[in-house]
């Protein structure tokens, strides 16, 4: 049969159509492989590096999300090398996060870490942030964000809104809006796609939506205020974005 490929993943046979990835096979078999940056409906981003697998006869540990499936491939998600390196990546990921009661376990990240025997990260986060609660229905909580980029793709490429983007570079990268201002100052339409795709709960619905009347007042007031704030932050802030309202480096990395 042309265009069908037979693979073995963790010793189990799976048949996949042409164009499928190894991750498709993993998911078809229901193997619990972390895939934090992969939106089930979207193209692979390759950012979280947690779906690493071992492939017989191949060097390194490719990420299953952008690894084309080939007929006869023998894949292991449980190979000790894959588990060890994946655990290392998950530790780095978990070390980005600051626990708190509202952040209840960081959803998919917490699950993946726990399955790899990681209950605590080995290091403290490099950055601290205030929660951006300027929108009525959801919050952007950067202390629960792993920078997978799913929200920015949902906002820009799926919804064609472009309210949020990855900004900055290196470990100072963050999800943000123009001028590192407040969410409410952006062109966000509260469509909810970012909230729906977020794997950690960094973008999450507010527990109790604000009352309608109050929302109108505060939104307009905040819009004006944060637009001004964003402008001054933009002209005043340092290159790395220091001085911007929602980005506070905890320690002075060079």
């Amino acid at each position: 049969m042309r265009g069908r490929m037979k693979l073995a993943i963790d010793g189990r046979a799976v048949e996949l159509p042409e164009g499928a990835t190894v991750l498709d096979g993993v998911n078809r078999l229901g193997i619990p492989l972390p895939q934090l940056c992969k939106d089930p409906d979207g193209a692979p981003l390759g950012a979280c590096r947690t779906c690493l697998v071992h492939v017989e006869g191949q060097k390194g540990l490719p990420a299953a999300c952008h690894l084309p499936a080939r007929d006869g491939m023998v894949v292991s998600t449980e190979h000790p090398d894959a588990v060890r390196v994946r655990r290392g990546v998950l530790d780095l990921t978990l070390s980005m996060l600051t626990p708190s009661p509202e952040r209840a376990g960081f959803a998919q990240v917490g699950d993946a870490a726990a399955r790899h025997g990681l209950l605590e990260p080995s290091q403290a986060p490099l950055h601290r942030f205030d929660v951006d609660a300027t929108k009525s229905f959801f919050v952007l909580d950067r202390e629960a964000c792993i920078l997978c980029g799913r929200c920015t793709v949902a906002c820009g490429e799926v919804q064609q809104i472009g309210a949020i983007s990855l900004v900055g570079r290196g470990h100072a990268t963050r999800v943000g809006v123009f001028g590192d201002g407040a969410m409410a100052a952006s062109v966000c339409t509260s469509c909810g796609q970012c909230v729906a795709t977020c794997p950690t709960g960094a973008l999450r619905p507010k527990e109790t939506p604000a009352k309608i009347v109050r929302r109108v007042e505060t939104t307009s007031a905040r819009t004006a205020a944060s637009a001004a704030a964003s402008r001054s932050a933009c002209s005043r802030g340092s290159r790395a974005g220091g001085g911007a309202p929602f980005f506070k480096p905890t320690n002075a990395w060079p």
Binding site: L92, M96, L126, I146, L166, R169, G170, H171, T173, W253
Partner: peptide, 18 residues
């Protein structure tokens, strides 16, 4: 390398700093 990490993938972005 840490400063020049583009920030996209976790091992490079976080790992070089650590």
């Amino acid at each position: 390398n840490m400063r020049e990490s583009c920030g996209k993938c976790t091992p490079c972005r976080e790992g070089t700093a650590r």
